[in-house]
Design a protein around this nucleic acid. Sequence first.
DNA 1: CCTTGACTTGGAGTCGACTTCAAGTTATAG
DNA 2: CTATAACTTGAAGTCGACTCCAAGTCAAGG
Lengths: 162, 162
Amino acid sequence: MKEEQSYTIKQTAEQTGITEDTIRYYEKIALLPRAERKENGHRIYRKEDINTIRLIACLKKTGMPLEEMRPFLAVSADTDPAEYPELVELLTSHRKNIVSQIASLQQVVDFIDMKLEEGRYRRDCLDVDLDGLLEKRMGEPKPKSVSPVELSYFSVSAKAGR
Amino acid sequence: MKEEQSYTIKQTAEQTGITEDTIRYYEKIALLPRAERKENGHRIYRKEDINTIRLIACLKKTGMPLEEMRPFLAVSADTDPAEYPELVELLTSHRKNIVSQIASLQQVVDFIDMKLEEGRYRRDCLDVDLDGLLEKRMGEPKPKSVSPVELSYFSVSAKAGR
DNA sequence: CCTTGACTTGGAGTCGACTTCAAGTTATAG
DNA sequence: CTATAACTTGAAGTCGACTCCAAGTCAAGG
């Protein structure tokens, strides 16, 4: 085994995409545990810590408020979730949230595709293969699309006269 | 045709899940157009407006700041996107964002599933069919799961001694 | 006529999440 | 020996998105 590699706050910021200030802030509000210091007082971070910060960044992308992250960080850090039933519940419940968030996002993607397709359709009304073109434009495969959910309200307004 | 149905701000709030205050606030910052008023000055809303508000709610769920929504609302309202190239670009670029957001979310779902599975696994170590059970617990089909992305950092810390 | 309820307005206050600031320490380079 | 850079601290400031407030209007009920 090699002795644990460690990083400065700057390196950590670079690796995680979270600014130094923000990392210190997270420590201040105890979202992160107090980082180890060297003799000179400078913080040092390990892979492990970087991973925790990455997890925060990831949860942030899901729109989770910092306060709600605490239990997740606990789980990530050391706790075995199954030992704490309320944690298990928290996890499953947040999972539901996220799944429904994905649905929301997918809806927006569909909205955008629809709009894009619509414009394209109007433009070169009569000859081009729509899907082929769309795929080319987006790079995305887009296997099925258009969620069953009430997508209605996204485009109506476009045609309803004002 | 029936004459357009209309709603009070209260009804609108109920239908959209956005509070009256917030709706007024959106109008104040001109995210929503000034609503029509009746003789007494009360706002009235149509299906069309409700749909716009729903779109805002939906975009909000994707974490989009209000300011960034303006162009989307324009598109939704009346503009043909293809007529404004910068709008098309905006749409495609935000589409990319969302797709990557979905990936982030999926990552978190995978993280949760992993944690849950892990706990379950430790618990009744030796006999149960994991996937079957998991599916039952979640209700979700979960056809493939575990995105290829660096999921590593999610669980390492769990086993790395502290 | 007075009250209740559903609204109106402008403005002030709150809250989460940073972000910036001022002042200080320590390490290396010229 | 000084200056630059990389950090430290605590506190204050900012910004987006509400959220609440006070004062007022109007319509219907008792």
